[in-house]
């Protein structure tokens, strides 16, 4: 009798634990599904393949201006310069094509988890790895030649689909995703804002004259020519700018924090078409 009661209690406890575990945990795939469903529900009139256009998918007036700008895209010069850089051999006679056999249309391969190095590798980081492997000085990460190179690669990769993978057999990859997630949702700076405060429930609202863009579509169109910058800039330049806008100290471009953030955010955007480089206000 006692044994039967003990077995029953144990079974109840196990079922309870399983239910609790199921209730609180979510896989990255479940989080991605919840994320995408949220924005599709929030903007029911925006076709799924429009989110890649950011605020211009939800702001008709802004879109009209943007379409006019796209008739003579301000990023064209960057694409040309990037193509020249891609095709110019290094001092040792080799070039980017020797590092990236599938190049230049390789944007959808990044960011990716590098099992050997145990870290997230982004496209700008991979380009500099290539340069350094060929005894070339690394490029600075926020603007200039690196933005030109990535603009050319992005242009050649247009139409590719975001497909970031989190390998199930390497827990370090999941840890990087989790770190990126915590960064995204953490309040920071003197204004005490997280990324989500602007780009989730307030997406579509106005911040002075600007319409806050939804997080779905945020990783599709980089690098970007921002009118505010008057030049091209990388995704990590934008991360830093957002951090400073909430009066937090920005992290260094290509720091572990920003690479993991990019990994998390791009994974959530899986399925979105790449359409970089872009033009934004």
């Amino acid at each position: 009798m006692t044994t039967a009661r003990s077995t029953f209690m144990l079974a109840v406890l196990l079922v309870g634990l399983m239910l609790a575990g199921g209730a609180f945990a979510a896989t990255p795939a479940e989080e991605q599904a919840a994320f995408q469903a949220y924005f599709k529900q929030r903007f029911p009139n925006v076709p799924e393949d429009e989110f890649k256009n950011g605020a211009y998918a939800i702001d008709p007036v802004g879109r009209e201006n943007w379409e006019a700008i796209e008739e003579f895209p301000p990023y064209e010069t960057a694409i040309s310069k990037g193509e020249t850089l891609w095709n110019t051999p290094f001092a040792n006679g080799r070039g980017y094509a020797d590092c990236f056999a599938d190049g230049p249309a390789i944007a959808a391969q990044y960011p990716r988890w590098d099992r050997e190095r145990g870290m997230v590798v982004t496209l700008p980081l991979a380009l500099n790895d290539c340069r350094q492997a060929n005894d070339e000085a690394p490029l600075k990460y926020v603007k200039g030649p690196i933005a030109d190179l990535v603009a050319y690669i992005a242009y050649e990769s247009r139409g590719q689909i975001t497909q970031v993978e989190i390998p199930a057999d390497d827990p370090r990859a999941l840890a990087a995703y989790e770190q990126g997630k915590r960064f995204y949702f953490a309040r920071r700076g003197q204004l005490n804002f997280s990324c989500a405060h602007c780009h989730f429930a307030n997406s579509g609202a106005r911040l002075r004259s600007e319409v806050l863009s939804p997080a779905l579509g945020h990783t599709t169109h980089w690098p970007v020519y921002r009118s505010d910058w008057g030049e091209m800039g990388t995704l990590h330049r934008r991360f830093a700018g957002c951090n400073e806008q909430v009066r937090a100290k920005a992290f260094k471009p290509q720091s572990e924090a920003y690479r993991n953030l990019e990994y998390f955010l791009t994974y959530l955007n899986n399925g979105q078409e790449l359409n970089g480089p872009g033009a934004r206000k």
Partner: peptide
């Protein structure tokens, strides 16, 4: 331990 807001997940 920042995480998705409850209105999303």
């Amino acid at each position: 331990h920042a995480d998705f807001p409850a209105y999303v997940l």
